[in-house]
């Protein structure tokens, strides 16, 4: 960039640092405006022709600047790698935009398919994917106690507790105490009006508390999803069950059948563990929250991603090569000079 005297005025302008800085500021401002827009309007910026041209012009600026540097200034190896890395990343993302596509497929248990939906059209896969099983795992509840809030009105008593099963909790000087004696993740009343658990999915978490108080004792069910439902006799003592069950893992077990290549295997797809086969990658993205009968997979075909990642490696390498040797140079600390 020091050799700004080379070439004709147009070349000089295209490769100039001034243009680079103007474009950088323009990209910064445009990106920020885009971020302020609601998500569905963001493509107005990021997918627009003018934003594409802005980044394209920036790439041209970088390219010419890099060519200039390689031919006229061979010493700055870190800087050259870094600028080339940005070009590699932009080239990779251009390939993603031009040749990549993504879509979605929903599979019920036992169902197989060799097509997926991309916008309003169906795309074919060169192999078949069958859902063998979909399952959902929850974090164990109650390991660190069940979160319970309790209030005794006449004593003005309030407490927030993590309650262990079968432990007694005296409530200050109110004269009340309670024990949590049973937890059911999926509570229902059956025909005989008995409390039963119908699954291990926390669909209706309920805790049975045995209250001992001045007026005697009672057993009471409290529900995390129905805080106001308290079937108890003593209105002076109220409970809240604050359990928020959290999902630990979604797992789709799928079978890939590809007779043309003689491939036939079963894999688990989880969040953060996609399945990659023949350039297609399958991501866990949606699920049937009611019956756990189907799964939603995102299907991505992106030939640019490996190029982008190569660019990332080069970028990190180049930036470290530029800057870390500079940390070694000593410089004067005026205060230390004085003392």
């Amino acid at each position: 960039m020091k050799n700004e005297t080379h070439g004709n005025p147009f070349w000089r302008m295209i490769k100039s640092i001034r243009l680079a800085l103007v474009l950088l500021w323009a990209i910064i401002v445009a990106s920020f405006i885009g971020a302020l827009l609601p998500t569905e309007q963001q493509p107005l910026v990021y997918s627009s022709l003018w934003f594409f041209c802005l980044v394209g012009l920036f790439a041209l600026n970088l390219l010419t600047c890099s060519i200039d540097r390689i031919f006229f200034n061979r010493r700055r190896i870190g800087s050259t790698i870094t600028h080339a890395a940005v070009l590699v990343i932009l080239a990779g993302s251009l390939i993603s935009v031009l040749f990549g596509f993504r879509g979605h497929m929903e599979l019920s248990e036992g169902q197989g398919s060799d097509r997926f939906i991309d916008g309003d059209k169906a795309r074919g896969l060169p192999f078949k994917v069958t859902l063998e099983d979909f399952s959902l795992q929850w974090y164990e509840t109650g390991q660190n106690g069940f979160p319970v809030r309790v209030r005794v009105d006449d004593a003005g008593f309030k407490a927030s507790l993590r309650v262990q099963l079968n432990a007694t909790y005296p409530l200050g000087k109110t004269g009340y105490s309670f024990v949590a004696i049973k937890y059911l993740p999926h509570f229902i009343f059956n025909e005989d009006h008995a409390a039963v658990n119908v699954s291990d999915q926390p669909k209706n978490p309920a805790l049975l508390v045995r209250i001992t108080g001045p007026g005697g004792g009672e057993d009471r069910w409290i529900f995390s999803l129905h805080p106001d439902l308290q079937m108890g006799g003593d209105p002076n003592i109220r409970f809240r069950f604050d359990l928020e069950p959290q999902i630990k893992e979604f797992r789709s077990t799928v079978k890939v059948s590809d007779p043309s290549r003689g491939a036939d295997f079963t894999r688990d797809i989880k969040v953060n563990t996609p399945l990659e086969y023949r350039g297609y990658t399958f991501y866990q993205s949606r699920y049937d929250s009611e019956g756990l009968a189907w799964t939603g997979l995102d299907v991505v075909y992106d030939p640019g991603v490996k190029i982008v990642f190569l660019g990332f490696i080069l970028l990190n390498f180049g930036i470290i090569v530029i800057f870390y040797p500079k940390l070694k140079a000593s410089f004067v600390n005026p205060q230390r000079e004085k003392t």
Partner: peptide, 20 residues
């Protein structure tokens, strides 16, 4: 995790702006 190395999520965009 999602199959998008860049999705113009606000956090992503702002981190790019910071970097720039």
């Amino acid at each position: 995790a999602w199959g998008t190395y860049w999705g113009w999520d606000p956090k992503e965009t702002c981190s790019l702006i910071t970097w720039l």
